[in-house]
Design a protein around this nucleic acid. Structure first.
Lengths: 73, 73
DNA sequence: TGATTTTATACCATAAAGGGTATAAAATCA
DNA sequence: TGATTTTATACCCTTTATGGTATAAAATCA
């Protein structure tokens, strides 16, 4: 599945030419977590997500559901 | 602790004159979850958070860390 | 004030997330 | 093309988030 978060992470990671392995190490989460995150798994823990987002200067917050629109990339 | 998410939920809930119990029922999550969410617990599951945010027309997404600023209320 | 509602804290049980790892699939590139 | 890198899938094990509940604290209001 594709989510606002998975899209964001994947785009940012690639724009920095990082592999999933590198992102996992840099953010301090497991490799499997990065994969599940980029694949849009919903039942993830917020603190782990924030660990990754922090690398890109972001955090998880409330975003209006303008369906079909994407913001902040 | 106070987070961008806890603040948002608490404000929105109160603006609709809902109790935590009512919000829990409406969103389909446990009462204890609502409490932990409003108290800023970090290790919460994303899908549960989104269940609550959906009631307010929002979802969890990447938000730039403009520390000290709040957005979207 | 006291009575009532609302919120906070603490405990138990269960389901599942997360890390690690091994293998398969796919993408990249010489 | 084939070789190498990257990503995806599947499994085991440990930790813990969640729901429920019971009680305490705090807030609300007559």
């Amino acid at each position: 599945m594709k989510t606002i978060l998975s899209d964001f992470i994947k785009l940012r990671r690639k724009s920095l030419h990082l592999t999933q392995i590198e992102l996992a190490k840099k953010s301090g989460v497991g490799l499997r977590f990065i994969r599940e995150l980029e694949q849009g798994k919903e039942t993830l823990r917020l603190d782990k997500i924030n660990q990754v987002l922090a690398l890109f200067g972001h955090e998880a917050g409330p975003v209006a559901m303008r369906r079909g629109f994407e913001q902040d990339r």
